[in-house]
Design a protein around this nucleic acid. Structure first.
Lengths: 380, 380
DNA sequence: AAATCTTAGTTTGGAAGATAGACGAACAAA
DNA sequence: TTTGTTCGTCTATCTTCCAAACTAAGATTT
């Protein structure tokens, strides 16, 4: 099986401060720029690329030759619908020139793995019941899934990307994930050494946010994704950068108190956001209620109350809800949006949009794939 | 009077997306890196710089020669306390080789101007009573102050930096500042053309946050500053980047509702944060109260309630309060901190720190100076 | 006192990368 | 057939950083 080597990618910034710049950095930057442009703007000629990137035709030609040699792009023949002049040779991404293994560990019951190509198409899937496994056994289960996928394909593997619950540092070490009893587990290091390909790990909600931003989509965007499942987590992207926070715990909003006299929570407090909108609890409350819509709306409003200060502070526009769509339906979302609007300035609140994830269940897989794409090819 | 030219600085990113890289970009990056290192780590030899920046001695020597020619740094003689080997020639920043004019327009009554050197020392000050001026008259007042300072000095001007109330876009256009009746005023363009030096404008709270981060201080830090005055604004810096928001209105938290049945606000809502902690209102309430401490604490707690979701989402550590210290005293701050801790996860809340600004009244001036330093010299 | 060692800073000769300008190729229009 | 346009490449040049060698200036050892 062909493999890319597993030395750290030049694009993997891994949280270090600003460093020196050498000419080669410019080269890598421009190579990534050309690749990114091809990702976004479909098939283009070398001259198109030069116009788009503001590099010269000579330089894009040279970079294109490099990318062609690596098999990342291919010539698609000449453009037909053209006016005067020599017809352009179109270049396009070879979607299957690299594939990524992704792991979605966010579900309490099942670990899921997928094989994703450069365009974000899912080529294969695997899954295993977790059956309560924790610690090393859970690591092994995840590893087995990844190995099984890697052995099932002859495609060139770009790397493995993981969306894991809990707090994950930029090097892919899971600092704490209570439900898996992980505490300082170097998941990225383990996967990289077993599979012998680059590995990148992020928090599941963060990964979902990356996925929602769109594979190869525009860089400069901001988005706040709230992932509702057993618990509640969030991923925040500002101007294309994932916000990690002081202890890499950004997005951990499940235990923000939204109802000081509310239900008791496993964490010891009362009225945590999780006690109001986590899937099992909300589902139970719905089954017990007379007026379902009222319960949905009230739960949404509670979320909105917590979101209002965040939306104002960050001047956010896009809020995405990920999780069971029967729970996070329009009534719920409208409740959240209403509460946000009532509690923020019009100039801020009027722009806000609360919408369900556009990728459904695959948001974590696609986000994990994007993570690998970003760090290995600089396509972000 | 000597002047630096007023063409846009190569460091002024002005919000545009990622662009191509040319060898010259590496040069500028490394030049800024050397300058920044000298800023932070005091006098160093060329060889020290090479070790610190991971460039070679050849390159740091070359860059140092350039900086010497520009007068930005100087040789300070040889190091004495050294062991074996040829004694090192120490290089240091010439603090007064460039000076910045700064304008603090955050006070409702008075426009203030200052002359700041590269180390953040304030060399001169001017101020003018605003006397209710708005629109063009307010622009003229600010301009006059800046012109007066520029004419009073023979130092080389690096640029002019402004902390303005309201929403300011990255090009320095004040999109809306109700109290000055500014609505799409190109303040940066105006000042740059009148003074013939580069001009940069930011929201006052954003500027204060930049100032608090420290001139020439470490890059990779995060900080949330809340500026209390006539109104309430905030500035947020994450990993060294100022958060601007979708419509450049990030930090506008004055009209977040924190008390749904609270006092009526000028904006039409009830219980906006401003009705609770803006200086004039809080002062009035204190004068009417029997138990001052209780009022302070309650006001602080209200702020804390709004902060809790923000702190959790961003995993923030440092919260800085800027404004009249008699109002934002320890009791107030403790109220805020208590409310944050009660409403966030321990791993997040235990790290949080709520402290007063360390720069006092000059935080906007120093932040505006830092803004210019960042954008003109890349020293951030 | 001479030789040796160590560290600072400079000179020299690449190597890598982007570019401007020139040029052949391929096609449309006149 | 000629002219004009656009594509893509070739070449010479410029910029930047770097490795290696070299000079400078002191401490340490012999």
């Amino acid at each position: 099986m062909e493999r890319t080597d597993s030395q750290p990618s030049p694009f993997a910034r891994r949280g270090q401060a600003r460093r020196k710049a050498v000419p080669g950095d410019a080269r890598r930057h421009n190579r990534a720029l050309v690749l990114r442009t091809l990702f976004r703007s479909g098939p283009l000629s070398r001259a198109d690329l030069a116009r788009e990137t503001h590099l010269t035709r000579v330089t894009t030609s040279d970079l294109a030759a490099e990318l062609l040699a690596d098999g990342l792009i291919e010539e698609l023949g000449t453009r037909t619908d053209q006016g005067v002049g020599k017809p352009a040779t179109l270049l396009g991404i070879v979607r299957r020139s690299r594939v990524t293994i992704t792991l979605d560990l966010s579900d309490d019951e099942v670990f899921r793995a997928a094989l994703v190509d450069l365009s974000g198409a899912i080529l294969d899937r695997r899954s295993s019941k977790r059956e309560g496994r924790t610690g090393k056994e859970a690591v092994d289960l995840a590893t087995e899934l990844a190995v099984a996928l890697s052995e099932s394909t002859d495609d060139v593997l770009l790397g493995v990307g993981v969306g894991s619950p809990g707090v994950v540092d930029p090097d892919g070490v899971v600092l704490e994930a209570p439900n898996l009893a992980w505490d300082g587990v170097d998941l990225a290091g383990h996967l990289a050494s077993v599979l012998n390909i680059p590995a990148h790990v992020a928090n599941d909600a963060n990964a979902a946010a990356l996925g929602e931003l769109g594979l190869g989509g525009p860089t400069e965007r901001s988005l706040f994704l709230i992932k509702v499942g057993q618990g509640v987590g969030a991923g925040l992207i500002l101007d294309g950068h994932l916000v990690m926070g002081d202890r890499f715990a950004a997005g951990e909003i499940g235990h923000v108190v939204v109802e000081p006299r509310g239900e008791h929570c496993a964490c010891g407090r009362r009225g945590c956001l999780e006690t109001v909108i986590a899937a099992p609890l909300l589902r139970r409350r719905l089954s017990e209620a007379d007026d379902e819509a009222k319960v949905r709306q009230a739960a949404g409003r509670r979320l909105g109350v917590a979101l209002a200060p965040i939306v104002s502070t960050l001047n956010l526009r896009e809020i995405v809800l990920s999780g069971p769509l029967d729970l996070l339906d329009e009534t719920f979302r409208d409740g959240a949006l209403d509460a946000v609007r009532e509690r923020t300035m019009p100039t801020v609140g009027d722009n806000v949009e609360v919408r369900p994830t556009s990728l459904g269940e695959d948001d974590v897989h696609l986000g994990a794939a994007r993570l690998v794409l970003d760090r290995e090819l600089g396509v972000s």
